[in-house]
Simulated assay, not measured.
Amino acid sequence: MYKVLVFGITENPGGVESFLLNYYRKIDKTKIQFDFLCNTHNKVAYEDELKILGSHVIHITMRSKNPLKYYKELNEFMKQHATDYQAVWVNVCSLANIDYLKVAKKYGVKKRIIHSHNSQNMDNWMRKVLHMINRYKIQKYATDFWACSEGAARWFYKKNLQSKAVIIKNAIELDKIEFSEQKRSLIRNKYGIDDKFVVGNVGRLHFQKNQMFALEVMKCLVQKMPDCVLVLVGQGEDEKKLKQRARELNIQENIIFTGVQSDIGGYLSAFDLFLFPSVFEGLSIAGLEAQVNGLPVISSYGVIPEKLKLNDNFHFKKLEDGAESWADEIVKQSSHLKRTDRKEIVKRFTEAGFNIDTEVKRLEKLLMERNK
């Protein structure tokens, strides 16, 4: 059995977590087993499913909470178990912490993969400084350099490594996210929005995802379409600020915060349009999942990679155009909304390399590939 120790699962079921689960559900478990190292002693996203799939979930203390305990637990685990693993795969949005690779090298893990999942800093200035310092160190500790997009590779790696970076597509389990009329009815009925025009967003409630701008758009949209609502699926540090801002704009009755949800396909089915105004992205799983569901999408231009657009009803708009202009675009799109045909979705996602059923074989090969 080829065993891989994976870092990247947190308590929040975000994009990285979805990416890892999409692949792990499909991977050949007679050949490859994933175990997951998590820097929290709390239960992480999908932990029950990970265990059912045969994984061990290892919890250690978060570095920011107790650095000494963190280093002690990390070193003790790797000292005892490094020989159990043929590879370590570190999935992160920043190089602020490369300890997992350092310790893996120290205890002899031969294949050490670093995987970039973002294209810009989403942390505080201190972590940004650490990221920039570690860009010069990472080659010493990692053997394989992966990224979700060319932009994510440029953000993570110096020029000499960018040419070596392997792009791993954020492939999707298409059947799990496909449109369901039944789920649409159930969820719209649950929130009492059966007869509303439903704008939706899925993602961490964080400045990167720009839900604050989405509220400004809704303020304008409510004046044009009084029966509209915005459904925000996710949790994050901006939740209180977003709720406060909704009250200040007097649109709290038009905003629904659902918290974390496991059935993303169901919620996407309940939406009429996906609002995607991120200020930066690597290659967003949320944007891909919205298209798998067939949803019309309005996305920030120059931020979301153009390669993300696979369906004809995916539209780009500049953030600098302002909230009023975005609201006008939603009104314009609402007059001829149409979901993309299922057969066309499968065809386009497979051809573009975003169908998990085809991409998982490539990942298996890359994981088990010997380093030269």
Rank of each mutant, 00 (worst) to 15 (best):
Y191M: 08
K29S: 15
W326D: 00
R245D: 03
M62Y: 13
K317A: 10
F276I: 13
H131G: 02
R25S: 11
D263T: 09
R184H: 12
L53K: 02
S116I: 08
V360M: 15
I264A: 12
L283M: 12
Q33P: 07
K102Q: 11
N91Q: 01
Q86K: 10
G322N: 00
K43Q: 09
I60Q: 07
R63W: 09
I187F: 15
M132D: 15
W155G: 00
L205A: 00
F156I: 04
K241I: 09
N97E: 07
E181C: 03
G353C: 14
K372I: 15
L230R: 03
D312K: 14
Q208P: 02
N97I: 11
L74E: 05
L53Q: 04
I58Q: 00
Y2H: 10
Y136I: 07
F145P: 05
E239D: 05
G8V: 08
I264H: 10
G15P: 02
P226S: 05
H206T: 08
I356H: 14
A352V: 09
N118E: 06
R25K: 15
L53A: 07
Q223S: 13
W155C: 04
S334W: 04
S278K: 13
E17C: 07
A352D: 10
E359D: 09
G108P: 04
S149F: 08
G200K: 03
R127P: 01
A104P: 05
I193V: 15
H59N: 07
E351T: 11
F19C: 06
Y191V: 08
G322K: 01
Q80L: 05
V346Y: 15
E237A: 09
D328P: 01
Y157N: 06
K164W: 13
L21I: 05
Q261R: 14
F349Q: 12
R362E: 09
R188C: 13
F354C: 12
D35H: 12
C148K: 00
N170T: 06
G353P: 13
M1C: 07
V44I: 02
E364S: 13
D272L: 11
L295R: 04
K105S: 06
V279C: 12
I32E: 14
L205H: 03
I133Q: 03
I114Y: 04
S149W: 09
S18M: 04
M225N: 09
F354Q: 12
D227L: 11
G265M: 11
F257E: 11
P305S: 06
A82D: 10
Y136A: 12
L295P: 05
K164L: 15
I172V: 05
K176M: 02
G15R: 01
I60T: 05
A327S: 02
Y141R: 00
G294V: 03
C38A: 05
I172S: 04
D238H: 10
Y136D: 13
